[in-house]
Computed example of a mutant assay.
Amino acid sequence: MNVALIDRHPIFRTGIRVMLNSQLNNINTLETGSMNSLAKVNKLGDIDIVIIGLSEEQPEIDKAVLKRVMRKNPLASFIVCAAIPCYESVGSLMRMGVKGYLNKNSSPDDLMTCVNAVIAGEPFVCHQV
């Protein structure tokens, strides 16, 4: 399974990668600091899951860029992990095609539940939202 981890903070990407590798088999990860750079650094080919971290400094997702990344990766399931959940945007993100939404304060179990749900084709929104 090919997973792209997008977040401006390397420690967040590393933590997610380590957690996924400890829980799932055959994981290949690609890490990048922004959605704009994903196409430039993608050496994995088809991506199965894209996990996008939003920070306190960047609490909103650029929906135009998200749509472009979704078009370029039509087979991928997208998960947004927000430092500050924006309750108003969860519905619009899900309507755009995002399959999972987490708060960065969620537990590691919530992340794995979310990943397993989107792998199974089911949407997931953490209970904090």
Score class of each variant (00 low, 15 high):
M1W: 04
M1I: 13
V3F: 04
V3P: 13
V3E: 03
A4T: 03
A4N: 08
L5R: 02
I6K: 06
D7N: 13
H9V: 01
P10D: 11
F12A: 14
G15D: 02
G15N: 11
G15R: 13
I16H: 08
L20I: 05
L20Y: 11
N25Q: 14
N26F: 01
N28W: 02
T29V: 05
T29Y: 08
L30E: 12
T32C: 14
S34D: 11
N36E: 13
S37C: 06
L38S: 04
K40V: 10
V41A: 10
K43Y: 10
G45Y: 07
G45L: 09
G45C: 10
I47L: 10
I49R: 07
V50G: 01
I51P: 09
G53K: 09
S55W: 07
E56N: 02
E57D: 14
Q58H: 14
Q58M: 11
P59Q: 14
E60P: 08
E60Y: 15
K63T: 15
K63L: 15
A64Q: 13
K67G: 06
K67W: 04
K67V: 09
R68N: 12
P74H: 12
L75V: 10
S77Q: 10
S77I: 02
S77K: 14
I79P: 02
C81P: 01
C81T: 03
A82M: 05
I84N: 09
I84Y: 12
C86N: 15
Y87L: 10
Y87I: 12
S92L: 01
S92H: 05
L93D: 02
L93I: 03
V98D: 05
V98P: 00
V98G: 06
K99G: 00
Y101S: 09
Y101H: 13
L102R: 00
L102I: 05
N103C: 14
S106E: 14
S106D: 15
P108K: 09
P108F: 12
D109I: 15
M112L: 13
C114S: 11
V118K: 00
I119E: 08
I119Q: 08
G121A: 07
E122P: 00
V125S: 01
H127C: 11
Q128C: 15
